Simulated scan of single mutants.
Amino acid sequence: MSQSKQKIVQYLNEAHATEVGLVRVLQSQIAMTPAGSYRTGLETHLRETRAHGERLQNRLSELGSGSNPLQAGVGVAGGVITQVLALAKTPLDLVRGGGGEEKVLKNAKDACATEALEIATYTALERLARSVGDTTTADLAGSIRGDEQKMLERILDEIPKLTEAVVRAEVEGNGSYDLSKTGAADAVRDVGESAKKTARGTTARAKKGARQTRKVPGVAQAEGQVKGAVASEEDLAIARYDKLTVDEIGSKLSELSQIDLAKVDSYERKNQNRTTVLDKITTLRGDEPWPGYDELSVAEIES
């Protein structure tokens, strides 16, 4: 392989790695972003980013060089699991709905920096490719750079609106951030609807996969928190929840798993928001002794 071709492959691999990493970043941002023009832009760019990765991979193959095998396929899996994982890494007060406006704004500012880096990456790749006579790679880089420039402009247009949301929430005390309207909550709803149409055998496999995923630290509680934000009374582990007194609810909370406690916590905050109930839940919530503990049966724990 010639020196010029080696350099082209190097730059293509760097660009591909950036796109792969950005898929995960975008999924995390979508998970925490309520419905609206900004999230629509993120979702559109997620599709573009996946396409960019595929186009770069194809060009690398044409040049006789595949991308790093550790990068291949990363970012393809999306949906509810990825978004719940994103929630599991966020501060608990944000998962409960506090400070969400500031987090979304910070994500947007970080996204601007990421887009600027990508624009620089593709500018360099395009210039290199044209300098050595590789017009195919140069045209590819120029095309993707155009997408990144449009995304940067779109984010910059959104930042004033996101800043105004922070002002309303943290200065005027009129917050609008709602966990039930985020990408993660929408994903939970979509999965719930799909599950109703799924055959029993497939459902069993899906439940097994979800159980394995909950063994990642923090996922179980985050899953309960998101589900509670979109739940109805019938979805809770405590029957006739809305008709019970505070004392009656309190007496039943100790029987719940951490997942169900998180679910009740989020449901309560969205509806009656009673301090006594929430304080009781707080005293009962805690980290699992080991990842996946809440998903084990008594026999499995004792073994």
Results as ranks from 00 to 15, higher is better:
6 Q>D: 04
7 K>H: 09
7 K>V: 06
27 Q>R: 14
28 S>Y: 03
29 Q>E: 11
32 M>K: 12
39 R>L: 12
40 T>D: 06
62 E>K: 15
70 L>P: 01
70 L>H: 02
75 G>C: 07
77 A>Y: 03
78 G>S: 12
82 T>I: 02
85 L>H: 09
92 L>G: 01
94 L>I: 11
97 G>T: 14
98 G>K: 03
100 G>P: 06
109 K>T: 09
119 I>T: 10
120 A>W: 12
126 E>N: 03
131 S>E: 13
132 V>W: 00
136 T>C: 10
139 D>T: 06
145 R>W: 13
146 G>N: 04
149 Q>R: 04
153 E>H: 01
156 L>D: 11
157 D>Q: 14
158 E>V: 01
167 V>M: 08
170 E>D: 10
172 E>N: 10
173 G>A: 02
189 R>F: 00
195 A>S: 14
199 A>S: 08
202 T>E: 10
206 A>Q: 15
207 K>Q: 13
208 K>R: 07
213 T>H: 09
217 P>G: 03
221 Q>F: 10
224 G>I: 07
238 I>V: 10
242 D>A: 08
243 K>L: 09
244 L>A: 06
248 E>W: 01
260 D>C: 15
273 N>M: 03
290 W>Y: 10
298 V>G: 00
298 V>S: 00
299 A>K: 06
300 E>L: 01
303 S>L: 14
303 S>E: 13
